[in-house]
Amino acid sequence: MLDATLTLAVAVVALAATSAVGVWYARRGERSLDALLTARGSASEGTTAASIVGSVMGAWILLSPAEAGAAYGGLTAVLGYALGSAVPLLLFVPVARRVRTVMPDGHSLTEYVRARFGTAFYLFVLAVSVFYMFVFLAAEMTGVTAALALVAGVPPWATAAVIGGFVLAYTAYGGLVASLVTDTVQTAVALPLLVAAAVGALWQVGGTGAVHATVARETPQLLTLTNPAAVAFGFYVVFAVLGANVLHQGVWQRVWAAESTTSVRRAFGVSAVAVVPLILLAGLFGVVAAARGLVDGNAGISFFLVVNDVFPPWLALGVVVLAVLLVASTADTVLNAIASVVTVDLAEFSDAGGATLTRVARAVTGLVALAAVVVGAQGYDVLTLFFLADLLGAATFAPFVLGLYLPSLGERGALAASLGGLAVGLAFFPGVAGLVRELGLPVSASFFWVFVGSTAVSVVATLLAAAVSEGEYDFRALGGVGARLTEVSER
């Protein structure tokens, strides 16, 4: 096991270095409200792509894909996870262009939904989006504190406080501009580290041939590509990931932060390609862990079980840096995203000036960071909350996105489609399905139907609502959304 003090010191050095880059970069430019929340038109294609990858690929890629590889169906489940994670990013290739075309002065997804649909659906989407983002952040903190406790015995509060403290410092100071540049640095370091960890682990266990032989002998079911449960997992994970990512304000911020529509479309395409091998490499650790007999009811930490098993301590420190950078690049995005949602909405509902809004943005960033540190250090089982957040996303994203394209879709139709999808998803949700069954409905708990069912109902209901509606939304109305805040920001 690694030394706890040394591990924490390495984490501090990695975080201090990236924080210094973030603060230095933010100091160079103007520190306006726009730089804090929007950074409009400032990010090159590479920065946008690196930032998207850094934002969506958190420490969870060291936990969930390996767990899927070890416990939910081996290689098929990992492949499904990898491809499923790419789908939402591919969806943004056309959606980003549409958003930038109809709402060039926009700042947030809630700004869009309020202007496009009205207050009721806005409040619903606001709640779903903020709930998802906070659960994501809390899960990241919980995951990394558990991982560092496992490999080095670092107390969870220490890990949470160090990561939360550094990320808060540069995000509160430099806002989105700092988040974009630190995401880029963190991704540029994390990608080679993950490759090195995978190649190093393979080297230590005798290469791909030896790994294949061990898995084929000990756990051959993990190498089949036709395991029905694994295929089902690979299919429903697409819908679980899709809705949640579409309602991630951090992703929306990057749509406007990119320098051009062409570069943002390419950046989403490149990001979609990038996440596939990353998740595959991380997920293979689960297959290796299961074949080597390391997993004993703790498949969630398979990646780190392999690291502990095959790496000498000094190499395991590289994985600590990897985990910390993955969390930091995700956490800064979520902190800034929640602060931006709150501040943008405050600007709409009040006549607060730029200085007040800047203070609010920084205060919200601090509050969310504090809450994430406190929750993350507790080691709660946040998985159920995560599934619930994913369900809310799956039920909501169809009317939300199709509202950009279907002029006849109204607020009542959007709400009905979301609530219909949510009802179906909840009926199959573990813990709820039993109650529904007692009412006489033939359902049993199934994540497949939670995500596929809720998405399907929501999509069909959205299309039906648009077909029967007689209203016609004029998309030109979105053209002026955000203009007041843009004016205040750039003053």
Partner: peptide
């Protein structure tokens, strides 16, 4: 069941793709 060759291709293909994406991102930075 995936063959040893297929498994190796999956692993090394993932490594190569990750490095390619990294190179592309760095080349399009400004």
């Amino acid at each position: 069941m995936i063959s040893a060759l297929g498994f190796a291709a999956l692993v090394w293909g993932s490594v190569a793709l990750t490095l390619f994406v990294l190179g592309y991102v760095l080349a399009t930075l400004r």
